[in-house]
Design a protein around this nucleic acid. Structure first.
Lengths: 159, 159
DNA sequence: TGAATTTAGTGGTATATGCCACTATATTGG
DNA sequence: CCAATATAGTGGCATATACCACTAAATTCA
């Protein structure tokens, strides 16, 4: 640790936040012309997968590994701007379904092209292979199983 | 992509944010007894490296890959609670130096023990080797050089 | 040296995100 | 069927984080 550049590098949590800030910056700069932030684009892309019927907020939040209330808040600017709409579920009165409006779908497609540029640059700079490896590792961490194992783990266990 | 669980998995930016949320949750839960959040602990640990004289905010922000104004805001709750103090630099009237108060140093040490538990669990669950590999990759992304290369890259270049 | 420029921080505003308390709507068990 | 419980969302509050405009102080240069 004699040469650590003065950076607190031993914490995976810190490391992932630093990287997330950097990457967020980089992606946002490229996606900005669409008027969307990277987070909004991700969210809308996820919603887009559910098509015409939309998706209830609960499973949406789970897929994003996000707190339900946080999702609700994040959705605010998007519904305000008419990109996403919340429609009541016909079967269950508690449920609301999020779906893209036509405008939202158009914006998402517009941002998609910009995102491809960003993702392409990332792969080019980082190497497609390492890039895939990275996403794989990140995907593992995002798993419910990982969370379960982490919470159950004894710090000195080695399984 | 036939089996993607409905999750928008192709974006490294999304992936890193999902993982950061999960990891933040996991670390925070363990560090919470100290009264600090994971982000605050990271920040204070970084500040702690600078010792008695503290460190100017600008390089601190750079080390954390964080916007200077964001750092200023993040520091607010910590100065309010007497964990960090900002002292004027003697040479340069523009500069303020952040350093831990005695209370802050004590809190940081307290949280350090809790953090070690968290980090130990991460290594145990993820595997120490993959854990190190992960931090290394994240460290690369957090580099100014990476940002420079990304911004300069043509999406179809392959160097 | 004095004006122009650069640099460090602050404060406002906006989004991102989490926790908690609360409401409304199911679902379950007698 | 009703009371107890569980589930889905909302709203308030707090922190995290970015951009912009602005101030103050240092540096540069003619």
């Amino acid at each position: 640790m004699s040469k650590n550049d003065g950076v607190w590098q031993h914490c995976t949590n810190s490391a992932i936040r630093r990287a997330a800030r950097q990457l967020g910056q980089l992606y946002d700069d490229l996606i900005e012309p669409s008027g969307l932030k990277g987070t909004q684009f991700s969210l809308m892309s996820q919603i887009a997968l559910s098509g015409k019927d939309g998706t209830p907020l609960k499973p949406l939040a789970e897929g994003l590994v996000m707190d339900l209330s946080a999702l609700g808040h994040t959705l605010k600017p998007l519904t305000r701007d008419g990109l996403v709409e919340l429609i009541p579920d016909e079967r269950d009165g508690r449920v609301k379904r999020a779906r893209l409006t036509p405008l939202g779908a158009q914006k998402q497609e517009e941002a998609l092209a910009l995102w491809q540029d960003a993702q392409g640059r990332f792969d080019a700079v980082f190497g497609a292979e390492r890039s895939a490896e990275m996403r794989s590792l990140l995907g593992l961490i995002s798993t419910p199983d990982f969370a379960k194992a982490f919470r159950a783990a004894k710090p000195d266990s080695n399984d």
